[in-house]
Design a protein around this nucleic acid. Structure first.
Lengths: 211, 211
DNA sequence: TAGATTGTTAATCGATTAACAATC
DNA sequence: TAGATTGTTAATCGATTAACAATC
C-alpha cells in the first residue's frame, strides 16, 4: 500500500537509486528475499535507516520474513519513475555532451532522447542521431514538446539556452553547467552535476588526508 | 591564522568549491570586499552558515568590514589544494573517459594528467596524449608514481583495475563506476560520481512534482 | 507456536540558524 | 566615536539510530 507523503527528504530520495541498484543485483543473482539487516550489511548502512527509508513510501516488507527482492525492486523503480519515457533533449555536443549522449542508458532510466543540439557541428551524427542547430531550438520545442533538457553547454551560453527553454515550457533540467537554473527560475526542477566541484572535493580530501 | 581542525564535516567541505567559484567571479568583477550578508544573498545561503563554514578554517574576516575577496579566494584555494599538481592517470578512454580527459581543467584544479589508459585504442591520441595499454598499468605506476586515478571503466573492469592500482600504491580515486572502492579498500580516498544515480534522482523529482 | 523481522515511536546525534558580545 | 560585521556560543531543526510492540 504505497503512501504518498509529498515531503520526503532529499536525503532519502538520493539513496533510492542505490537501493534500486543493489536490489537489481540481488535479483540478478537469484536472491528473492532479503531482510533489512542483511541488506544493511551489504550496503554499509544501518538496518534502521533502510526500514525508515522504505517506510516513507509504504510497508513493502513482512514481519518475520523481510522484503521480497523482485517486488521491492519493482516498487522502487516505479517510485523513481523508470517506467516513464520523458522526451528529452541534450544541448551542447562538445566532449561532455557527446559522452552523455552515448554513455548513458537513458531508456532504462525513464528518459527518451528526442534531439541533440549544438550551435556548430550541425548534421554530424552522434549515436545515430544527427545534431540539430541550436538556433532552431524554440521551433523544435513547439513541435516536439520535450519535457527535459540536459545542459552541456558552458555557463556563458547556458543563461540564453535556459531562458529559451523555459519560455517554451521546458522546466526540467539535468544541468552540467555552473549556471544556477533554480536561482533564476524557481519553478524549475533541476539536478546539478558539478564535475569540477566534485574534483575539488577530492583534492581537499587528498590534501588533508593526514591532518 | 588558519586552523586545522581535522574533523571538518563533509557538509562544509562540499560547499567550499562553490564559495571558491563565487569568490573567483567577484574578483573577476573587480569587487574586493564582501560581507557574509551580501555573499549569502548572492549564493542563496544564510550569512550565519557562511561565517560558520569559514571559521572552520580560520578567522578570515574583519569585524565591521567583512572579507577581503582576493585574500579569501586565495585562502580557500589553498585549503582546497588547487596549488597542487597531483600526478594523475585516467583509466578507460570510452566516451566518458575521453570527455573527462578533454573537458576538465585539471591544472587549475590541482591535478596533472600524466597518463591515459585503455585496453583498446592504444596509441590513439586524446588531447595530444597517446593512449597507453592498460596491460602496462602496473609497470607505468612503478615508474611514474601517479597519486590519483580516475576510473572511467565499467563496473566489471573496475575491481581488477583498482586492485592493481592499490597494489602499486595509488589510493586516491575519482570514481565514475559503480564499483564500491571504499568498501573494498577502506584506506582509499574516493570521490564518487554516479551519473545514473543523479539522473534517477531527477526522474524522481519530475515524476513527483505535483504530489 | 516460537523466532524473526517489520513498522513506528522515542532518543540521539549532527547540521543549520539565531543571537549577541567583541571589535574593527 | 558610532555603525557595521565578525567570531562564537546557544537554540533549533532535521536526519540517523535505537528500541520495541505488533505480527507474520
Amino acid at each position: 500500500m504505497p503512501k504518498n507523503d509529498n515531503n520526503i527528504s532529499m536525503s532519502v530520495i538520493k539513496r533510492l537509486p542505490r537501493y534500486y541498484r543493489f536490489l537489481g543485483n540481488l535479483k540478478k543473482n537469484g536472491i528473492d528475499r532479503i531482510s533489512s539487516k542483511e541488506l544493511s550489511a551489504r550496503m554499509g548502512l544501518t538496518a534502521s535507516q533502510i526500514r525508515q527509508d522504505l517506510n516513507c513510501f509504504g510497508g513493502f516488507g513482512q514481519q518475520g520474513y523481510g522484503y521480497n527482492v523482485s517486488q521491492l525492486y519493482k516498487e522502487i523503480g516505479t517510485i523513481l519513475g523508470v517506467n516513464n519515457a520523458h522526451p528529452t533533449i541534450i544541448i551542447g555536443m562538445g566532449n561532455l555532451g557527446k559522452a552523455i549522449a552515448t554513455h548513458m542508458q537513458f531508456a532504462s532510466g525513464g528518459f527518451d532522447i528526442i534531439g541533440l543540439f549544438d550551435c556548430q557541428k550541425v548534421g554530424v551524427k552522434v549515436n545515430g542521431k544527427a545534431i540539430l542547430n541550436s538556433a532552431n531550438l524554440a521551433e523544435f520545442c513547439e513541435e516536439n514538446k520535450p519535457q527535459v533538457a540536459i545542459i552541456c553547454v558552458p555557463e556563458e551560453s547556458a543563461a540564453g539556452i535556459v531562458s529559451t527553454l523555459v519560455k517554451c515550457g521546458v522546466t526540467n533540467f539535468w544541468n552540467f553547467s555552473h549556471y544556477d537554473i533554480v536561482a533564476n527560475y524557481p519553478e524549475a526542477v533541476c539536478e546539478n552535476v558539478h564535475l569540477s566541484d566534485s574534483l575539488m572535493t577530492l583534492n581537499y580530501q587528498i590534501t588533508h588526508k593526514d591532518d
